[in-house]
């Protein structure tokens, strides 16, 4: 895997990952395109630029960790792992098939490189906190990134971790909220509004940044800021578009958990290839 800080190269990697996401979901016949496409620019930037990890040695003790708390967005993670060479590209063909390591939601027993078994929303940030505590205790320089959905953080457990993170002085913990304003039953603002979200995290004493989650430049700057030594845990509130990159999926809640049919797949791929 070649690491890069070039926004153009990262954009091109993210575009390829979007193609992989659409192809794997189409082949699987089910799954979650909306939240995979909204998260992919951030996940790509983490794995190809800012995270210190080695796809050929995923168990390395001092690796930076990525916890995908919104487990249904896992096609985005599989695409990045395949692009980086941590899993074989052909394995993406087995998504959601029986006997596959590429489960519909991440399974760390089958595929240890995914770090945590998620899919029951609201649990990832606690796990990320525990890893961050352990790394701190071991005096490891490694950092922990946890990606959540905005709908997901309606779970009470998330707020328990938002409460405890600052107490444990976890400057090595970075929570990222993929704010695409979509969940299953509607828009987050209608289902259970979170506003003022950044203020709420600030009131719980986190270091908070708000970014455009599709601007590689802004993501890079925000991640750099989380690297400054501090006792404060970090939250990045990323404004995103559900289904980003495929025009007919963008901001359309119907694409939360539905795979494209062959005709839709062809249209989506054509759009992505022209980007």
């Amino acid at each position: 895997m070649k690491k890069t800080d070039s926004p153009d190269e990262l954009r091109s990697l993210a575009r390829q990952c979007r193609i992989d996401i659409i192809e794997m979901l189409s082949r699987a016949g089910s799954g979650h395109p909306g939240g995979s496409l909204s998260a992919i620019d951030i996940i790509t930037t983490l794995f190809f630029s800012k995270m210190n990890w080695d796809p050929k040695n995923p168990a390395w003790d001092d690796r930076d960790r990525f916890i995908l708390s919104k487990g249904h967005g896992v096609p985005a993670l599989y695409a990045v792992l395949a692009e980086a060479g941590a899993i074989a590209k052909e394995e993406l063909n087995t998504l959601r098939r029986i006997n596959s390591r590429i489960q519909g939601h991440p399974d760390r027993a089958a595929l240890p490189v995914v770090e945590a078994s998620t899919g029951s929303l609201g649990q990832g940030l606690s796990i990320a906190q525990g890893i961050a505590l352990g790394l701190k205790l071991k005096k490891s320089p490694a950092r922990v990134y946890c990606m959540m959905g905005d709908g997901e953080i309606q779970e009470g457990q998330v707020w328990e971790t938002i409460m405890s993170g600052p107490k444990f002085k976890l400057g090595n913990l970075v929570a990222i909220v993929d704010c695409n304003n979509g969940q299953i039953d509607g828009h987050v603002t209608e289902v259970m509004d979170l506003a003022p979200l950044a203020d709420k995290w600030r009131a719980f004493r986190w270091h908070v940044q708000e970014v455009n989650g599709h601007s590689i430049e802004e993501i890079l700057i925000a991640l750099d800021k989380t690297a400054t030594p501090t006792d404060q845990p970090h939250a990045i509130i990323a404004r995103t578009v559900k289904g980003k990159g495929v025009s007919f999926m963008e901001n359309n809640i119907g694409w939360h958990g539905m795979a494209p049919n062959p005709e839709e797949t062809a249209r989506a791929l054509e759009e992505l290839r022209q980007r």
Partner: peptide, 28 residues
């Protein structure tokens, strides 16, 4: 946040005043 899947949406549409959308917060 699963009324589309549990099909409670059928009740929600008919009786919006007696339907409570709790968001992804099962304990609550």
């Amino acid at each position: 946040d699963l009324s589309v899947s549990t099909k409670s949406i059928l009740f929600a549409k008919e009786f919006p005043d007696r339907f409570f959308q709790m968001g992804i917060a099962e304990q609550n």
